[in-house]
C-alpha cells in the first residue's frame, strides 16, 4: 500500500506564483513603512507624467478641431460673366448630381453686389458703376467624406472643369498651416514625452536605489542564505512598478481634473460661435497607455538600479 505524502515544497509553477505573491506583499510593505515619502514620490512622478500626457491630450483636441474645420471647408465657383439663366440651371443640376457635393448655394451677381454694398461700405462708389462687375457665385459644401486636402483638391479640379465656370477657389492654405502646426506639435510632444519619461525613469531608479541601500543588510543576509539575485530584486521591481502605477493614477486625476474645470468655459466659448465642442479627455486606450507606460517605466527604472546594486553587495 502506498503512503500518500504531501510534498513539502511547492510545485515549480506554484512556487513561482507564491514567490511573486510574497514579493508583491513585501513591496507593498515598503510603501507602508514610509507612506509620506512614498506618496510624495508618487506625486512627483504623477506631475512629471502629467505634462507630456496633458500636451498629448491637448494636441488630440486640436486635431479634432482641425478635422472639424476640414469638414467645414467650402469651394467657391465663379461663373463666366456671360452666363445665362439656363446655364445657371444646368450648373445647378450638375452640382446636385455630383456625389462629392453635400450642398451648394447660388449667389447671383445682383445679390452679390447688394451684399457687397452693405458690407464694404462703398455703397455710393458702387452705385456709380454702369455695369455689375461681379460674377455669379456658387458656394459648394463638400460631403464630410471629403476630409483630406488631396480629396478637396481633387474635387476643386473637377468643379473647375465644369462648363461656364470661370474659376474656382479652395481656401486650404490656413488649414494646411494648422495641419503642419499639429504635426509639428506632435513631434514636439513626442520629444517632450521622451525627456519626461526619461526623468520618470531616473526618479524611480533613484528612489529604488535609496530603498535598496536601506535594505542593504537584509540583501546581504538573504544572499548569505542562498537567495538568488532575482529573488532579492523582485520586491524592488514591484516597488518600481507601483511607483509608476500610482504616479500614472495621479497624472490621470490631474489631467481629468483640468479637463473637468475647462469643460464649462469651453462650452460657453463655443456657444458664442454657435457651435459645440466637448474637450476629449483620456479614453480607455490612453488611460491604459498612461498606467501601463508608468508601470513599465517603473519596472525599467528600478531594474536599472537594483540589478547592479544587488550584484555588487558583498556577502563576505
Amino acid at each position: 500500500m502506498f503512503n500518500k505524502r504531501k510534498s513539502l515544497h511547492h510545485s515549480p509553477i506554484v512556487h513561482y506564483i507564491s514567490q511573486h505573491k510574497k514579493a508583491l506583499k513585501t513591496s507593498l510593505k515598503h510603501f507602508a513603512i514610509t507612506p509620506v515619502t512614498a506618496l510624495l514620490t508618487c506625486i512627483v512622478i504623477g506631475v512629471v507624467l502629467t505634462l507630456p500626457m496633458g500636451l498629448f491630450v491637448f494636441l488630440k483636441n486640436i486635431q479634432i478641431i482641425s478635422h472639424n474645420l476640414h469638414n467645414s471647408a467650402q469651394i467657391t465657383l465663379y461663373t463666366n460673366m456671360t452666363v445665362s439663366a439656363d446655364q445657371i440651371t444646368q450648373l445647378e443640376q450638375t452640382l446636385s448630381t455630383n456625389p462629392a457635393v453635400q450642398s451648394f448655394q447660388y449667389i447671383s451677381p445682383e445679390n452679390g453686389l447688394k451684399e457687397f454694398q452693405q458690407q464694404a461700405g462703398f455703397g455710393d462708389v458702387l452705385a456709380e458703376l454702369k455695369d455689375n462687375p461681379l460674377p455669379g457665385v456658387f458656394i459648394v459644401y463638400p460631403k464630410p467624406s471629403i476630409n483630406t486636402t488631396a480629396q478637396a483638391q481633387g474635387l476643386l479640379t473637377q468643379l473647375k472643369n465644369i462648363p461656364n465656370v470661370d474659376s474656382a477657389q479652395l481656401d486650404m492654405n490656413w488649414l494646411n498651416k494648422l495641419n503642419a502646426m499639429v504635426i509639428f506639435g506632435h513631434h514636439l510632444v513626442y520629444a517632450i514625452m521622451t525627456i519626461f519619461f526619461f526623468a520618470v525613469l531616473l526618479i524611480i531608479s533613484y528612489t529604488i536605489r535609496l530603498n535598496t541601500q536601506n535594505y542593504q543588510d537584509e540583501i546581504r543576509v538573504i544572499k548569505l542564505l542562498g537567495g538568488t539575485n532575482r529573488f532579492i530584486a523582485r520586491p524592488f521591481l514591484y516597488n518600481g512598478m507601483f511607483y509608476g502605477l500610482f504616479g500614472g493614477i495621479i497624472a490621470w486625476l490631474l489631467i481629468n481634473g483640468v479637463i473637468w474645470t475647462l469643460q464649462d468655459p469651453m462650452a460657453e466659448l463655443t456657444n458664442l460661435y454657435g457651435t459645440t465642442f466637448n474637450i476629449t479627455g483620456l479614453n480607455l486606450h490612453l488611460t491604459a497607455m498612461l498606467l501601463g507606460g508608468g508601470m513599465l517605466l517603473g519596472y525599467f527604472g528600478s531594474r536599472l538600479s537594483v540589478s547592479r546594486y544587488i550584484r555588487n553587495v558583498d556577502v563576505r
Partner: peptide, 22 residues
C-alpha cells in the same frame, strides 16, 4: 547576522521561504 527589523519567526523562516516551502 539577523534581520533586526523582522520577527524571530521571519528570521528563522528565511531559508525555507527562499527554498519555496509550503
Amino acid at each position: 547576522e539577523l534581520l533586526l527589523k523582522r520577527s524571530v519567526f521571519d528570521n528563522v523562516a528565511l531559508p525555507l521561504v527562499i527554498t519555496g516551502f509550503r
